[in-house]
Amino acid sequence: MSSTHTKLSKSDILHLAKLANLSISDAEISKYESQLAETIDYVENMKELDTKGVAVTSQTTDLTNIFFDDGLVNNRALTSEEAVANSKTKQNGYFKVKKIM
């Protein structure tokens, strides 16, 4: 394993939880502090490889320009009943959430 030791603070973890829209307990915070740091330490090994000038790969397919033609018949349309069927909070074909200011 790599020798670097990443330190994540409680506020780092809380910030990440906020970004990720997750609520976490105090017990989870201390657990994640070390677990995330352990993973980050491991992946530091990438630094051993010289990537100067190397192109990035975000896709392995080599595909480009995959489009559909506007106005194509819609075979996937859902009715509003189907659309909201799995929702626990719905009203008259709408999804319902707590009032947003």
């Binding site: 009203q91 008259n92 709408y94 999804f95 319902k96 959430v97 707590k98 009032k99």
Partner: peptide, 13 residues
Amino acid sequence: KLIHGENKTLVDF
């Protein structure tokens, strides 16, 4: 689109 009501917000996609 959000439609804001008295004590709820409705969502239409």
